[in-house]
Design a protein around this nucleic acid. Structure first.
Lengths: 200, 200
DNA sequence: CGGTAGGGATAGGGTTCT
DNA sequence: TAGAACCCTATCCCTACC
């Protein structure tokens, strides 16, 4: 029922922290089902727990902040020096504070699988692929708000497992596609140019 | 566990649709075993196919309408609204949609058209896909001689199951990309512009 | 045990309210 | 502009049933 807003009480928050300590983050239903915590959290759903846990961690390592900013950033983009900004490491105060772990780096140093990509070995093939990746990134963007530069770069890199060094390459290629009219930039968001009508 | 979240690529989704078209919904293992589709879906399990098919169908009846409405809410600026809608409409690439049978939806496999919705049926979403298809067609060209117009058109249509009527659309879009500098035409053969070398 | 269907849970993007 | 609470839904997981 759409009541006002249910702010989290310290008691609830403690129950959540304790629950996560025992069950681990992600086991929201399990925490809720445990009478040790469930009673204090009677008014919350598993999704609520998840959301709250995310908020608790918001100011810590940027698990939410990082991604959220990407989607909403409105900066006067251009020059991606800002891209160098990376989430600062968790504050390593020797305390027992239970906080969400950054989901971005839960890689125990294993996988990093390189999928088969149409990238050729010669430079030219590389660049043409970048174009394709960029257009794909924009075309396949499913969110309501169109992607901004950082979102595109992030997606292109993730989808194709590019090395960080490729960022500048992709960025400048994106700029080129804008200059050339293939892609349209408006309000720092990008879409494929619909200007085809006059072509024929 | 696996990775973060494995979003379905357009390619995978197409393989699934085609597979269902041939085997029918529910024959997930059969689709996976068919080399025509299994290769594109090698990262997916039969259960994954089932799940994906389920949520493809979920958006058929009313979901899109809803999305479009949401997009309309954020009317900051005229054109921005249009952009948001385009992003939503991008879901239907320029191909016939094979969708799960649903109580409200029982067409015989003909073109799937979203009923009266606020979404402008300008084919913008379609064109953006065409661009990608064209670049992909050229990029993936493996022969020594670069592709000519006919080869590109043929490949784009085959790869994406386009209707014959789309030929003019693709052709004019190709011309546009040439005019605009993204693609270079020489001796009636096409390549992606390498205009990039100076960037890095 | 292998496969499918269905329900439910989780993750993460996005929105609203303050 | 930021943070907290809430919403939406694609993906993933679990279980019953052949």
């Amino acid at each position: 029922m759409g009541g006002p807003k249910q702010m989290w009480t310290p008691k609830e928050e403690k129950a959540l922290r304790d629950g996560v300590r025992e069950y681990g983050a992600g086991k929201w239903r399990g925490i809720l089902s445990d009478s040790k915590y469930g009673l204090d959290l009677k008014a919350r759903s598993n999704v609520d727990l998840k959301d709250k846990w995310r908020n608790i961690g918001a100011g810590i390592s940027g698990s939410r902040k990082k991604k959220a900013k990407i989607a909403f950033q409105n900066q006067d983009e251009d020059d991606d020096t800002a891209l160098a900004i990376v989430a600062v490491a968790n504050d390593d105060n020797g305390e027992q504070e239970i906080v969400p772990a950054s989901p971005a780096n839960d890689n125990g140093g294993e996988q990093q699988i390189v999928p088969a990509s149409p990238v050729n070995d010669d430079d030219e093939g590389l660049f043409t692929s970048v174009d394709t990746f960029i257009l794909e990134a924009i075309t396949s963007w499913k969110k309501l708000l169109l992607p901004n530069k950082k979102s595109i770069l992030l997606r292109v890199e993730e989808k194709n497992n590019m090395e960080p060094g490729m960022k500048r390459l992709v960025a400048s290629r994106l700029t080129h596609l804008v200059n050339v009219g293939t892609i349209i930039r408006k309000n720092n968001r990008y879409k494929i140019a619909p200007t085809y009508a006059a072509a024929e």
